Simulated assay, not measured.
Amino acid sequence: MSDAAVRITGMTQRRPNFELGPIDLVIPSGYVTAIVGPNGSGKSSLFRLLLDLAKPNSGGMELLGEPVGSSNDTKLKARIGYMPEQPVDLEDGLRGNQKTDFVRQWYPKWDVHLYQELLRRFEVDPAIKLGKMSKGMRRKFDLSLMMAHHPDLLLLDEPSSGLDPIAWKTMIDVLHRYMEQGNRTIVMASHIVDEVRRLADYIVFVVQGKVLGFYEKDTLLNSWQVMYIEAAGVGINWKQMPGYRHAASISGGTTYKVVTEDALQAERWLAEQKLALISKQKLELDEILLHHIEHARGVL
């Protein structure tokens, strides 16, 4: 794993009726990491903390090797592009090009040619008032504005919210091209399974304010499987199976449906137990997330 783009150590934030953390997390630079979790799990709060828009009660954070919350972080923030889940209502009276004229002065690497190219690809007219733009057009404008200064790190909170299928495919291509340079990093919160599949190298599960796991995406999707096993006349303690998550008999019979997060070792264990594996299939990302949620809630 490369150097850390994001490093969080012992971070907590306490609010009425919700606590985020404690979180210890290292996100590598040069990759796309997706933060996945249900609504209200703390994903947006985490982004605000990383940008020093909110303060933690304890712990420390670093972005691109620099501490978050230092007295002068102008140079650090000039290396970051951030797109919040919701636009700022106070900007609704501004035209897109008025916001651009204000924002660009903060970024020494501002690239007007890249900005205009992104607007063209996304079919956005910056002369329109931000409050008059549709949700999808506002999203495309914000993405163009955020990427025009060649940031080293993108923090994207539900980036495809409001995008139609064509704009979504354009966004995927734009982000792939952004990553081609090799030393850039994207951290995104997303609930779109296909978006995570296409973009992410790593996945972080966040549930109820806690990080429940950091995984390499392909390893995760290959390891989590549901297996159908014939166990006639045999008493099996399924919890001994490597990676065991859940087991249930099908219609009360001798065939069992068992979920494991370590498919390779589970198959070896089945062979040792002389149990017949009838079939198996990989779990989808949303199914894996559901298992994490139910485990956190004590359901499984």
Rank of each mutant, 00 (worst) to 15 (best):
A247Y: 11
A248K: 12
S223E: 13
W224I: 06
L220H: 06
K210H: 00
Q240R: 14
I229W: 03
W224K: 10
I236M: 13
A232L: 05
A232Q: 08
Y244F: 15
K239C: 03
K239Q: 04
E216Y: 11
Q208H: 03
T219V: 13
S223N: 12
P242Y: 04
R245I: 06
M241Q: 10
L212P: 02
G209A: 01
S251I: 11
K239I: 03
H246A: 07
L220Q: 05
T219C: 10
A248H: 13
K239R: 13
V206K: 05
A231N: 07
V207K: 02
I250E: 15
Q208P: 02
M227H: 09
V226H: 07
I229D: 11
E230K: 13
K210S: 02
M227E: 08
G209H: 03
F214Y: 01
A231V: 06
N237I: 12
K239L: 01
W238K: 09
A231D: 04
M241V: 08
I250G: 13
G233H: 04
I250K: 15
I236L: 10
M241W: 13
K239A: 05
N237W: 07
A247E: 15
Y228M: 07
G213E: 00
V204L: 00
R245K: 02
E216W: 06
E230F: 12
S251C: 13
G253M: 06
I236T: 10
R245A: 02
Y215W: 03
S249N: 15
M241H: 06
V204S: 03
L212E: 01
A248S: 12
T254D: 14
G235T: 11
I203F: 04
F205N: 02
V226C: 14
A232M: 11
V226F: 09
G233K: 10
I229K: 12
G235H: 15
V204W: 01
I203A: 05
V206M: 15
T254K: 15
W238M: 09
Y228V: 10
Q225L: 10
A232G: 02
Q240A: 09
G213C: 01
G252V: 06
N237S: 12
V234D: 10
V206G: 08
K217L: 08
M227W: 08
W224V: 08
K210C: 00
L220G: 03
A248T: 12
Y244G: 05
S249P: 07
L220F: 14
Y244K: 05
Y244A: 10
V226Q: 14
Q240H: 13
V211L: 00
G253F: 06
M241L: 14
T254R: 13
A232P: 06
A247F: 07
A231R: 15
S223G: 09
A231T: 12
S223F: 04
V226A: 07
L212K: 10
K217N: 14
E230Q: 12
V204T: 01
I203D: 02
E216M: 11
V207D: 01
N237A: 11
S251Y: 14
Q225S: 10
V207L: 03
I236W: 05
D218Q: 14
L220I: 08
N237F: 07
M227C: 14
F205M: 06
